[in-house]
């Protein structure tokens, strides 16, 4: 078996009495989309934060690209190759769309300590930035102020910034939320090809999307992973049906 790109080992995290992650084991292998599903408040975003940095697990470790990164800062993990999109868009709102992607390209280059050359005239950065905008379909918006984008467009921009980093893994927290039918369909098509570049850990509420895209699915309920498997295995898993899919079906 090939070495996993990301290996989460026995990670636990509590907020007071609330157990947000309970002994979580999960790995992401090269070339796959590993979907993480679970009801609201299950602890999906909390797990992403512990992987990307910003939240320290109480115990357990996060191994990325063969290296234990549990003690590293968010910035250091990003430099090692984690490309993350946030559930609640986290962008430089006063900047133009293009400036946000150039910032990403700058992050990939590694050093921002250049003080005199105008960064918005740097051909190499601009080329990378524009290419990423084209991929998510935001090239028309490049000169708009980011705060003027719709929610869906901000999600697309987040994906574009992650692309400029050319990461070794994508950590995406509900990238399709707010995109609408057409936008979701487009992004799904894109993610489908993106896994060739780097594997994706995808948190997603939309079941249809998950079942279409994912190579493997992990189901998180109340901080524990109750099942991991292929689409068929998860569909057939009675525990999952009871805990999660049943709910969904009952709701719809």
């Amino acid at each position: 078996m090939t070495e996993p790109v990301l290996d989460i080992r026995n990670v636990s995290k509590s907020f007071g009495a609330l157990v947000a992650s309970e002994g979580i084991n999960l790995d992401v292998r090269p070339g796959e989309i590993h979907a993480l599903i679970g009801p609201n408040g299950a602890g999906k975003s909390t797990l992403i934060k512990q992987i990307a940095g910003g939240l320290q697990p109480d115990s357990g470790s996060v191994v990325f690209d063969g290296q234990d990164v549990t003690a590293l800062t968010t910035a250091a993990r990003a430099r090692l190759g984690m490309g993350r999109t946030f559930q609640i868009s986290s962008l430089a709102m006063d900047y133009s769309v293009l400036q946000n992607v150039v910032l990403g390209a700058l992050g990939r280059r590694g050093t921002v300590f250049r003080f005199f050359r105008p960064v918005m005239r740097d051909r190499e950065l601009l080329a990378q930035a524009r290419a990423a905008l084209v991929e998510v379909g935001l090239e028309e918006m490049q000169n708009m102020r980011t705060s003027e984008l719709s929610h869906g467009q901000r999600r697309q921009l987040e994906v574009a910034v992650a692309l400029t980093l050319a990461p070794k893994i994508f950590l995406m927290d509900e990238p399709m939320a707010g995109l609408g039918m057409e936008g979701s369909r487009r992004l799904m098509g894109f993610l489908d090809t993106l896994r060739q570049r780097a594997p994706i850990l995808l948190v997603e509420h939309d079941m249809d999307a998950v079942f279409q895209l994912a190579d493997r699915i992990s189901v998180l309920v109340y901080g524990s992973i109750i099942a991991t498997g292929t689409v068929e295995e998860i569909r057939a898993n009675p525990q999952v049906r009871a805990a999660y899919l049943g709910e969904e079906e009952a709701r719809s």
């Binding site: 800062t73 990003a78 430089a92 900047y95 400036q99 910032l103 700058l106």
Partner: peptide, 14 residues
């Protein structure tokens, strides 16, 4: 300027 607007964003790009 990005850090002023959003530190999390700057960290996410390393």
């Amino acid at each position: 300027g990005a850090a002023r607007q959003n530190e999390e964003r700057v960290q996410a790009v390393g």
